[in-house]
Design a protein around this nucleic acid. Structure first.
Length: 319
DNA sequence: CAGTGTCAAGGTGGA
DNA sequence: TCCACCTTGACACTG
């Protein structure tokens, strides 16, 4: 599970002038900064006023996190889906987009002027290929919300929303076909930001590449999920194939990286970065440009460690 | 105030 | 058919 299977591709031996460009980031939460952009509340206590107050606090914290990141050279960040609680729920009638339009624009300007890369990642309940049309409708509503956040930030098409293919329902081919079918009906505002990610139990990177072949959606490669769930393709080989699914307008390929928690069951994310494993991953993945998201529990601490590792290696150029 | 059961949302697989 | 689990932080109630 922890082995890097397969031979290095010949292309990985070619060294470009200046080295590979990297950004390294972490998702959603900064553990040391003293605020959370994830604050929420119970649906039972919903009110528009409460939503706006919570969202205002979340946005203020997001601004602090981004500034902290810039100070520490971290230029890749995943914005939490909880930024605006219940935004896609029918109960929500608050005009949060108008309320925070200026705030979003200001944050977006900060993001662009500092060269920060942004992603979002809706959680497990978003299933575009579900047989139940209500589930699909709720999923699309949630993707609409995600696209609205990134649009309000006035970010270009390189700001992405990453999604898993969805359920298997005992029929891989049929479930992939349903994903493709629904994808074709999505609003372009959603489609321009959507990328698909291999998961640890169901759809593999090879499945994602097959879907890309049909609809040209970029593929976000999750290194750890690939170790859990693949047909044995080598990591360097997959990176080389997947990088080609990202066009210029999509920006640099995004990659999710984590490693196995040493005690917990297979698939559990580590508490701290495994520096040896990460170094090895960098070594075999050069010279492809990548933005690497570290899905590791201690968040910014591991990001700083990863940046130190990459900086010490002249084959890479930190963005 | 610490401890703890629960939280919008789905899928999977074992009992 | 039912229920625990996935994975996880934070809410909100309990004592």
């Amino acid at each position: 599970m922890r082995e890097w299977s397969g031979p290095l591709s010949p292309r990985t031996c070619i060294q470009p002038a200046g080295g590979s460009a990297l950004r390294i980031g972490y998702p959603c939460i900064n553990r040391g900064i003293g605020c959370s952009a994830n604050r929420t509340f119970r649906l039972a206590s919903y009110s528009d006023e409460r939503l706006l107050a919570t969202a205002r606090g979340n946005l203020a914290c997001l601004e602090k996190i981004l500034a902290w990141n810039v100070q520490h050279g971290i230029l890749f960040f995943r914005i939490t889906s909880d930024l605006i609680p219940f935004a896609s729920h029918p109960v929500c009638t608050a005009g949060w987009q108008e309320e925070f339009r200026d705030e979003f624009a200001r944050l977006g300007e900060y993001i662009r002027s500092n060269g920060i890369r942004i992603s979002m990642h809706p959680d497990q309940f978003i299933v575009l290929n579900a047989p139940d049309p209500d589930v699909v409708a709720r999923s699309i509503a949630e993707l609409t919300y995600h696209a609205a956040v990134l649009d309000l930030l006035l970010l270009d098409g390189t700001a992405k929303t990453q999604l898993h293919v969805g359920g298997m329902y005992g029929d891989r081919e049929g479930s992939i076909a349903r994903f493709v079918q629904v994808y074709d009906t999505l609003d372009p505002a959603i489609r321009r930001r959507l990328v698909i990610e291999n998961d640890d139990r169901r759809f593999t990177a090879a499945d994602c590449l097959a879907i890309h072949g049909e609809i040209k959606i970029p593929v976000l490669f999750d290194v750890f999920h690939h170790a859990c769930n693949s047909s044995g393709e080598g990591v360097p080989e997959m990176i080389q194939r997947i990088t080609g699914t990202w066009k210029r307008a999509d920006g640099t390929m995004m990659v999710d990286y984590s490693s196995q928690h040493p005690e917990k069951r297979a698939g559990s994310h580590a508490d701290h970065i495994d520096t040896q494993d990460f170094s090895q991953f960098l070594a075999i993945s050069k010279p492809v440009d990548m933005d690497i998201m570290l899905e590791i529990k201690d968040k910014e601490a591991s990001a700083l460690a990863a940046i130190a590792i990459a900086k010490a290696d002249s084959r890479f150029v930190l963005q």
